[in-house]
Design a protein around this nucleic acid. Structure first.
Lengths: 189, 189
DNA sequence: AATAGACCAAAATGGTATTCTGGTCATTTT
DNA sequence: AAAATGACCAGAATACCATTTTGGTCTATT
């Protein structure tokens, strides 16, 4: 069996279950049925192994979001569906959940760094969609990075943060209504 | 000299300099030139004293923001000026700075609670302005709480968070442009 | 009646002995 | 010869416990 692949699977399992800090290289080696030294022939250190796993997750997340697009739907509809998918992934995927938890409770620096990188990657992903919308003439030209940032932060605020200070969650209709009237409407030609 | 006032002044000084956790009741008593027991005749415990000081600060902040309004200016202009003032206060006022720092580094629960309360108060303050705009016929009817929340979170994102993941800060023009085109434009009649 | 500060239980802190962990490398296996 | 292993090590993390600090009380004093 491919040792590199075994190691990656073991690392995914361990990081997902215990987080970055509580995952030991011995642990990974044991799950992968591999000597600890072997890991170091494929990954130069724990952090590189971690990045590798996280990057794989990000690619999967973008893939899923991509596939969410509806044929023939408007830009707003697709953008909304895609971003909601990203947020759902964020709250559903074992590893992602664990990383957010670890960032909140433990403040592990490596985890903070990785979460920042992921956020940048997501915003770039959204900015790319906006640029494509502009190129296709569906959207007005605009500062796509800035709009993507504002859009993502707004979704995070409405979907995740609102319920932290309010008893009720916002309904999806409330969210689409307010964003269609504000950010999205400013984008359309 | 009014002992209650002395205690409040001493507490303001100590909380501003050392934060909540590192401020001791002995410290406050000493600064106020008062026996420790005396504090407890005016405030039932440390947390109540703290709330009292923080509440005073919030009132001052709202006051300053209020006074920032420009006669005869449009809703957007006033709203922008007021919210920027709130954010500036947040980054300028000794006690506020200390509380944000303590929340980030120490995670003192009492501080987290208080910061949440302050955020709610600010959002309510903004929602009130929106309601008044609606009543005066300057704005379309809307869910003012929701818009106030989105607006405040957007300002925080653009003014405070952007620079954490980007080298350059956003200019005030970039911020007003994007918000005028999006959230504000949806509000106007 | 108001104030003070000695006092107390509980929590926080500091110091240190012990364990754990990432990474290496000489040895073993293939 | 090339790949894999796991004993080994230095430094980091943890657990432990003695000591100090702190919020809050309560009796003595003004």
């Amino acid at each position: 069996m491919d040792r590199r692949e075994e190691i990656i699977l073991a690392a995914e399992k361990s990081f997902s279950m215990f987080g970055y800090k509580a995952t030991t290289m011995d642990q990974v080696a044991k799950i992968a049925n591999v000597g600890k030294g072997t890991i170091y022939t494929f990954f130069s250190n724990k952090e590189e192994l971690f990045h590798s796993i996280v990057w794989k997750m990000v690619e999967e997340m973008k893939d899923i979001s991509e596939r969410t697009a509806i044929e023939g739907a408007s830009f707003q509809e697709n953008a909304h569906a895609r971003i909601m998918q990203l947020l759902k992934f964020r709250e559903t995927h074992q590893l992602f959940i664990k990383l957010i938890e670890e960032e909140k409770e433990l403040r592990t620096p490596a985890v903070g760094d990785v979460l920042t990188t992921i956020e940048k990657e997501i915003v770039n992903f959204i900015a790319g969609k906006i640029d494509r919308g502009i190129a296709k003439g569906e959207l007005k030209p605009c500062d796509s990075k800035l709009i993507a940032y504002l859009l993502f932060k707004s979704y995070l605020a409405l979907v995740n943060d609102w319920s932290k200070t309010h008893d009720d969650q916002l309904t999806e209709k409330q969210i689409t209504d307010v964003l269609n009237n504000t950010i999205f409407s400013s984008l359309l030609v």
